[in-house]
Amino acid sequence: MDCRKAEELILSDYVDGELKGELLRVLEEHLHSCPACQALASQTVDLGQAVFGGAVSNPPERVWLAVRERISVGRSSLVERAQSWLILFFGEPRRVAFSVTLAMAVVVAGLFLPGMWHRPVAKNKDVVTTELMLASAGAFLADDDDTWADGLEYLL
């Protein structure tokens, strides 16, 4: 095994204990005869531990008290509820934002557009309202910086 292949394995599978069988045996053989790769392996472990390791501390007690409070008071707003459901089923915030906007657009269109046929007098007002709502719903999507939660909050 050459150093390049060894480095590749060291930086992931080896230090993470995912390397098994023959490949592990060959790599360890290389490590015995190569001080550079040996050093890389220990540096990699140390650095990972320094940044991501360390003792696990529990969050302060006030966090649990707040959780309990929020659960028992049932202060969960509609937005929070929608947020956790969506995160649960889709995970991807941006995709969710798109689907939600689309669904809202369909609902809004369904509510307002049929009215246009029967109420000619109110026609202009309805069209404007629908267009405004669709435009504003799209606005947060176009702005790449908005989070989907903000968008949801805005829409709901």
């Binding site: 969050p59 966090v63 959780v67 929020r70 659960i71 509820r81 947020q83 956790s84 995160i87 649960l88």
Partner: peptide, 10 residues
Amino acid sequence: VQDVFVSVHR
């Protein structure tokens, strides 16, 4: 942590 556990409960 707070949001996660409120969400988990729900």
